[in-house]
Design a protein around this nucleic acid. Structure first.
Length: 480
RNA sequence: GCUCCCUUCGUCUAGAGGCCUAGGACAUGGCCCUCUCAAGGCCAGUACACGGGUUCGAAUCCCGUAGGGAGCGCCA
């Protein structure tokens, strides 16, 4: 648990500015777990005054799509995680889409071929699958059996002549220890013998993840890689590739995975799992970022933070090693907090789609100011919209009892007061009170129910200011 | 199957052998305030997965056990 290595490893340094990256594959919408990784990566760069880079890992043409690529960028931007270089912000280290970097990869493939660090493999996916299964059945780890490892030039030529296409496999050296210091999890050591020869170039000529990811980190000058724990045991492969190419390896920090309330990996059955889904539900970027910021990370600051404050408070040494549970209830708390801190104009913009189109600007403001404390999600505003601008709200049985107890005279007095002082709740309450002798709960509760149909809700005075002319009077008069 | 990782209140976590009868935040419950809800103020309950060691002393170090997770792909 000694953390001294961490602090040294990630200390901001003038000589080597921190460069971090987020490297998603556009094969789906931005997942919460990835968003969290992106946030940590962004914060690591910002806290050090470094650079944050976005790189699109679209080497798998079949699974990648333009739409997801666009969506992911939109969601990242929405979260406020702006990249200093990446798609739309090209510089001399780009392009930032791996599908456009084939020339660079080709050069490195050539280097590896010349130094005999890779070899052509003609095994078919089916053969490999069979091999894996039989190894598993025999109680062994499923590794590449080395079938094509020592093919002669003549044998390879024969295979090609027979129409077979080859992948390129990395020749993993035997008995080589691979060690690195993970800036989240501490010193790691692996033995190369635990790793089977792996594919660096697919049969279709495209670069495989282990290769392109590692090579690009080096080419783009990435100093710190923040990624999910699922990559931890694969890191030695990338270090091996980089070493074979004589390229520098970044520092790696593997963060714990995000899991659902039941401890299983966060998936569809836990409900919404993408940034886009939460965004569409009306959650704010601030709420989402604040929640993700605390998942697996302890913050010295307890309140709602903006990204600048988060960058100050972020410390990789305070990243936990245990997987973190995503709890929608906690997210709601941040959402409530973020709505509370919005200015009226911000709430106005946030709730614009939920407001009737024909409202005057002052009425819109009055309505927003009245209900904002009772709104967590835009959906909630719809309910109040109906109550304030819709037809007289129905009264359920328990509430009707309160109405009945107040009596017709009470509402006659209230309606009269509303006629004299339309829209002025304070005057209505005072006049009704003095006319009926009622006060406190006995006065306000029947009024609230008659006006809104509910026993609880926003303060009545502001609510009445937003109501259309005559609404209050009519609602009170209906019980007289 | 093999290798690796993880386990402190409901949740996120603090914790680097004595500062720990384990701290904070949020959630929960109670009280106050209040026309209600919310907000705010005050108070409360709740956790070191289990079992062995090492030590004068263990949440912290070691070994097991249990539970959870990851990797072993022409996915990333």
């Amino acid at each position: 648990m000694t953390e001294t290595y961490d602090r040294a490893a990630i200390a901001p340094s003038a000589q080597a500015p921190t460069v971090t990256r987020f490297a998603p594959s556009p094969s789906g919408n931005l997942h919460l777990g990835n968003a969290r990784t992106a946030l940590f990566s962004y914060l690591l760069a910002r806290r050090a005054g470094g650079r944050f880079i976005l790189r699109i890992e679209d080497t798998d043409a079949l699974r990648s799509s333009e739409e997801f690529c666009r969506h992911q960028q939109e969601d990242l931007t929405w979260l406020g995680l702006n990249w200093d270089a990446g798609p739309g912000r090209e510089d001399d280290r780009g392009p930032y889409r791996q599908s456009q970097r084939v020339a660079l990869y080709a050069g490195h493939f050539l280097t590896l071929e010349h130094s005999d660090r890779v070899y052509e493999c003609f095994c078919t996916p089916l053969e490999l699958e069979v091999s894996r299964k039989s190894q598993l059945a025999a109680g062994n780890p499923p590794r590449y059996p080395g079938t094509c490892r020592h093919l002669t030039a003549a044998q390879r030529a024969a295979k090609r002549a027979a129409g077979l296409t080859a992948t390129l496999r990395f020749r993993v050296p035997a008995g080589e220890p691979v060690e690195f210091v993970d800036f989240v999890r501490g010193p790691q050591n692996f033995l190369s013998d635990e790793i089977g020869d792996f594919i660096v170039r697919r049969a279709d000529g495209s670069a495989a993840y282990f290769f392109s990811n590692a090579v690009d980190d080096a080419a783009m000058g990435i100093t710190h890689v923040v990624r999910g724990e699922d990559h931890l045991t694969n890191t030695p492969r990338q270090i091996l590739i980089l070493k074979a190419l004589d390229l520098p390896a970044p520092r790696y920090g593997h963060v714990s995975l995000l899991v659902g309330p039941d401890g299983a990996k966060l998936s569809k059955r836990h409900g919404a799992t993408t940034v886009r889904e939460y965004r569409e539900q009306g959650f704010t970027a601030t709420a989402l970022c604040n929640h993700l910021f605390r998942l697996g990370h302890s913050s010295p600051e307890n309140g709602l933070l903006d990204l600048t404050a988060m960058a100050k408070a972020f410390d990789p040494a305070h990243l936990g090693r245990a997987s973190a549970h995503f709890d929608a209830a906690q997210l709601r708390v941040w959402q409530k907090e973020s709505v509370m801190q919005m200015s009226t104009d911000e709430v106005l913009e946030w709730l614009a789609p939920q407001l009737p189109a024909d409202l005057t600007q002052p009425t819109r403001r009055a309505f927003i100011e009245a209900i904002r404390a009772n709104v967590v999600l835009p959906q909630d505003a719809l309910e109040w919209r109906e109550i304030v601008f819709g037809s007289p709200p129905p009264v359920a049985a328990p509430e009707q009892a309160v109405i009945d107890a107040a009596g017709k005279d009470f509402f006659a007095a209230a309606a009269q007061a509303a006629t004299a002082h339309p829209g002025d709740f304070k005057a209505i309450a005072t006049l009704t009170g003095s006319a009926t002798g009622r006060k406190g709960k006995g006065l306000y509760q029947p009024l609230r129910i008659a006006l809104t149909g509910l026993t609880h809700g926003p303060e009545l005075a502001p609510l009445l200011r937003a109501m259309p002319e005559g609404t209050a009077r009519a609602r009170l008069a209906r019980f007289a």
